[in-house]
Amino acid sequence: MDRIRRLINLTAYLLDSNKPVELEELRDTVYKEHVKSEKSFKRMFERDKEELRENGIEVELVKDVWGDEAGYTISKEKYNLPEIEFEPAETVSLMMVSRLFLGSGTPFSVPAHTALLKLGFDRKIDFENIPHFRWVDPPRLSTILEPILDGLQRKKLLRFSYRALDSSEPLEREVEPYGLFSHRGFWYLVGRCHLRGEVRSFKLDRIISDVEVNRLSPKKPDFEIPSDFDIEREAKWEWPLPVGEEDIVARVYFSPQISSFHSSGPIVPVSSKLLKRGGIEAVYEVADPEHFVEWVLEFGPEAKILSPPELVNMLTERVRSFLKSIG
């Protein structure tokens, strides 16, 4: 609480004063009750400046006309939110954007909220009547994402315990975080893994420990990101293609009940026709048969694969083995 008060007082003084404030002056006012020695005062002042900088407040050292250090100041122009002229359409779209992560359970949620409040300050806008799109994640993600974002920002090593899909034991990993992406609703960290010696993607749901950010030399980056690193390329991985590698053409029947869902699945139909009794027959080019069969299965007996026989076999085989397995 003392620290926050001190930071507020420091900001208030430097923002309010018409002329630069000398170091001694600060020591005898804002820092009077906080420090015992000159040395500890200077350390504390440096830390506070850094903290304010992190928050977007620039404490500047100003020189006088003779080039001597005159004192410290915070410029009002740099501190104050400028009155930006937005077109009405721009305001609406910015509101929509800043609401995406509101209450999302990710560390984006707080900055999204404060950005919204800042944008709304000069405008009488009825927030409630702007359509909103929101992102919701399970709460655990927030605690993992926070240190990851910190490591990404400051380029510091991350350590965590990771259970890979293909290994039975979780392993301790040390990773240089390069980037972060989400795919099909799941978050992945991309970085150089010291254990494997190459760039890998880590699914955050498989991190089973806390994520620890390297505490040594906090102001110095631990690594450099290769100049050809491209998050878009990393995020574009596809499910491995099965043997054959050619797309399979599949025809599927949907009952009248659920016919409108033929175009809502993982792939867009190439063509579809409405049948006399209200059902729909749709044609798909399938790259991943397993994934496709599983999607059709979710409709139970309301959807039926008409061809090719390989996919029909795959589906009925799956159901038979299921029946056998549950006894």
């Binding site: 923002l15 309010d16 977007g56 104050n80 900055p111 999204a112 404060t114």
Partner: peptide, 26 residues
């Protein structure tokens, strides 16, 4: 008696970053 704080602090890096990332996603 807080005239020096009468306007909000401008956007921080973090806030601008979230707007950029969300904007691109949308």
């Amino acid at each position: 008696q807080a005239d020096y704080f009468s306007r909000p602090l401008r956007m921080t890096r973090e806030e601008a970053m979230v707007l950029l990332v969300s904007g691109r996603a949308l």
